[in-house]
């Protein structure tokens, strides 16, 4: 990756004849902003680029850097082991938890095996199996969301992608242990929500969460995929917007430079946030916990009456 300094040098060179390089200057400025990752206020489209940054921590980075004693548990016991969603027991600051998240992978091979974090029904069913397992032993559930969306393919439809996600939405409403969900990168539509129903829903400051990708929305409503930056503004997918809309409870500030430039700082901020939310939730009786979760999601939405 080009460093911020190199980018700035390029920019200075272009600035000598600004008329000729208007577009290049704009693109470079945006790239610098992304590379700084939230140091300055970013547009929605720029934030999406930070959320998708190739060096952003992935699930495996979190389980090794933030949690300890991670024991990965494989398979949905129905059809396969979908690597796009990963999960298992782990410790977090002395607490036993079940951590489950989308895994985009880092190397080309990993990305291929994980379909870039786009899960099949098998992934959602594995996640639910692990959540029910955790519930039986009173172990809280931590989910880390980072996906463009559920995988749109033949096998997914064949095996009930829609039903797998829907079933998780129903069952996550019923699970009697605390669930804390954090969008750490991309929160892409139903594929994100499929592990996103919790007592607390949080976002890292440069993550995004949206009903449809900016590209998809631009293709449908603008009939032009290149209008994605405009669609991104309209969809308001940033953490700040979602906090205002009361869809998330808390925004976790990433270190200056963004999560991709400081893993340790990101893990520390997320660990602190998860633990401070977890401790009070553990004191709530199971029946009251699910009732409050129902009330939380019941209250979402803005309409006229």
């Amino acid at each position: 990756m080009t460093s911020t300094k190199e980018l700035e040098k390029k920019l200075a060179a272009l600035m000598k004849s600004p008329d000729l390089f208007e577009k290049e200057i704009r693109d470079l400025k945006s790239e610098i902003a992304i590379s700084r990752g939230g140091e300055k206020s970013l547009t929605a489209w720029e934030t999406i680029q930070v959320a998708r940054h190739k060096d952003r921590p992935t699930f495996k980075d979190y389980v090794t850097g933030m949690f300890t004693d991670f024991i990965e548990l494989h398979g949905d016991r129905r059809f396969s082991d979908d690597l796009a969603i990963c999960g298992g027991f782990a410790h977090l600051g002395g607490e036993s938890v079940m951590v489950i998240g989308h895994d985009k992978g880092k190397t080309i091979e990993e990305k291929g095996d994980r379909r870039f974090g786009c899960a099949l029904p098998d992934g959602y069913r594995k996640a639910m199996r692990l959540m029910r397992l955790a519930e039986r032993f009173g172990i809280p559930i931590i989910t880390l969301i980072d996906t463009q969306g559920a995988y749109p393919g033949l096998e997914g439809e064949e095996r009930g992608q829609a039903e797998a996600i829907a079933r998780n939405l129903v069952e996550m409403a019923q699970i009697s242990v605390p669930i804390i969900c954090t969008v750490v990168g991309e929160g892409g539509s139903g594929g994100a929500l499929g592990i996103g129903v919790g007592d607390k829903v949080m976002m890292l400051s440069n993550s995004v969460y949206s009903v449809i990708s900016a590209e998809g929305c631009a293709g449908i409503l603008w009939r032009d995929g290149s209008k994605a930056p405009v669609a991104a503004e309209a969809l308001k997918p940033t953490a700040e917007s979602l906090l205002k809309l009361k869809v998330v409870d808390r925004v976790i500030q990433e270190p200056s430079g963004g999560a991709h430039s400081d893993y340790a700082g990101t893990f520390e901020a997320l660990r602190e946030a998860v633990l401070s939310e977890l401790r009070p939730l553990k004191k709530i009786a199971p029946a009251k916990l699910t009732k409050k979760r129902f009330e939380k999601f019941s209250a979402m939405g803005i309409y006229n009456e």
Binding site: M172, L193, S210, G301
Partner: peptide
Amino acid sequence: GILSLMQMAKTC
């Protein structure tokens, strides 16, 4: 936007 997505969780 996101509020429409949340209706999936709400109805379920």
